[in-house]
Nucleic acid binder design. Structure first.
Length: 423
RNA sequence: GGAGAGAUGGCAGAGUGGUCGAUUGCGGCGGUCUUGAAAACCGUUGACUGUUAAAGGUCCGGGGGUUCGAAUCCCUCUCUCUCCGCCA
């Protein structure tokens, strides 16, 4: 959520930046400023009336104590009009604030100046490409066939238990999952992130804090009986740990990580591109989250990007880094890098990580602040990134590392899997 | 699921109608003392809004009510804790 004061002071800039994100309702900016004017006016009138009423009440108290009952009664006679006025103004104020809030949550975050214009994923900027795409023989298999051949993942069994998009990992397939999770967590810890194990169900306030609610409600599984949401990413609980928190300056940066399963409804996405592990309703992911001083957030974003790239390099996967264009970016993000690995059997790039700087967009909703050098509270910047999401990593590993007589496990994982290949 | 208790500042914990944004203790910050530190002593220490700065306003779990006036009384919702039951 953008701050009204920022919108007021930077009206033109806001409009210009929103245009980069292809925002369709620029008139909201003027409406918000007008509403805020109205809010201030009404607030002011209500405050003044309250001040009068407070003074009168105080006076009555004094008079009563000194036994001047008559005088007290005389003042009492006048309080009715204030009372009525305060009630009316407060009601007005309430509805103005509600309207303001409703409009405010419709504004996406402003994109960073480096964000390219554009509408579609094709217009994302390729920042770099790294690693060599393996040349597979003609009889190479896609990962879903490899998963069946080596009895690693059973998609049908998942359908029986739950439904499509809830795979069952078996034997070495399960072991590989666990190995990847442990490896990612260990690497995150080496990079200074401290591990959290967090709830997989969150309340409405948490969903609002990181930006999933109110607009992306349909993407989360909802447990109506208890009014809770299954997390679509660890970002939600891990970032919300800092909701309503004022940090000391020396507590920054905060670096946390966590492994969780993630649940996404992915309503309406079916077809060839979602086969196998390409798109799931439940998947495993290790997430890294930072809370930083505003001056350092873009450096932190680069650090996180480098961390993710390091993982991909260590796993020996060819990858590329994209700077998302305005139209493809998330609602809450100011700058996002996507990391994609090359899936050699499918002959396509698969997104395996997304690293974003939200600047104050989340912290404003979360009321996540720190005390700055002047001793004032100030919104911190939040960032997060997948490091990494498992399914497409597994897909790429299986496909790219397949040989005549099995699948080779990357060296860095062998200490975790305790086996060097899948046969 | 049944019964009861509770929700106050970073934490602990007073406060049952006006002088309470709130006693006190701990913690934090600043200072005195000290070679330095500890101890002791002194001072200071909530958030939001508003303003050039102030003044003023709002906030004692959320919402509503009574009253000239509510942390305090009433209603309601939510949450937490204790005991019992069930249970990994």
């Amino acid at each position: 959520m953008l701050q009204v004061s920022y919108i007021r002071d930077n009206r033109e800039l806001v409009l210009e930046r929103l245009a980069v994100k292809n925002f369709k309702q620029p008139e909201l900016v003027e409406e918000i400023i007008a509403l805020d004017d109205k809010r201030k006016q009404t607030q002011n009138r209500a405050d003044n009336t309250s001040a009068e009423a407070n003074a009168a009440a105080k006076k009555i108290g004094e008079l009563m104590r000194t036994g001047q009952k008559e005088e007290a009664e005389a003042i009492k006679a006048n309080t009715g009009k204030w009372k009525e006025e305060i009630k009316q103004l407060t009601e007005q104020l309430g509805s103005i604030e509600e309207e303001l809030q409703q409009k405010l949550v419709l504004l996406p975050n402003l994109p960073h100046t480096s964000v390219p214009k554009g509408l579609t994923p094709e217009e994302n900027e390729i920042v770099l490409e790294n690693g060599e795409k393996p040349q597979l023989p003609g009889n190479a298999l896609p990962h879903w066939e490899l998963a069946a051949k080596y009895n690693l993942i059973d998609f049908e069994l998942g359908v029986k238990i739950t439904g499509a998009g809830f795979p069952v990992y078996k034997g070495k397939g399960a072991k590989l999952q666990r190995a990847l999770i442990s490896y990612f967590l260990d690497e995150a810890e080496k990079a200074g992130y401290s591990e959290m194990i967090v709830p997989l169900l969150v309340n409405e306030a948490s969903g609002f804090g990181t930006g999933q609610l109110p607009d992306k409600e349909g993407q989360m599984y909802y447990v109506g009986l208890d009014n809770l949401y299954l997390i679509p990413t660890a970002e939600v609980p891990v970032t919300n740990l800092y909701r309503d928190v004022i940090l000391k300056a020396d507590e920054l940066p905060v670096k946390n990580c966590g492994y969780t399963p993630c649940f996404r409804r992915e309503a309406g996405s079916y077809g060839a591109h979602v086969r196998g592990l390409n798109r799931l309703h439940q998947f495993d992911k290790v997430e890294i989250v930072q809370v930083v001083h505003p001056d350092n957030s873009y450096q932190a974003l680069e650090d996180m990007s480098a961390h993710v790239q390091g993982l991909l390099q260590n796993l020996g996967l060819p990858y590329r880094v994209l700077r998302l264009c305005g139209g493809d970016m998330g609602f809450a993000s100011a700058l996002t890098y996507d990391m994609e690995t090359w899936s050699a059997a499918q002959q396509r790039w698969l997104e395996v990580s997304s690293v974003s700087n939200f600047e104050t967009f989340q912290s404003n909703r979360l009321k996540l602040r720190f005390r700055n050098a002047e001793g004032k509270t100030q919104l911190a910047h939040t960032l997060n990134g997948s490091a990494l999401a498992l399914p497409r990593i597994v897909a790429t590993l299986l496909e790219n590392n397949q040989t005549e007589d099995g699948i080779k496990i990357p060296e860095v994982l062998v200490p975790y899997t305790k086996f060097e290949s899948i046969r």
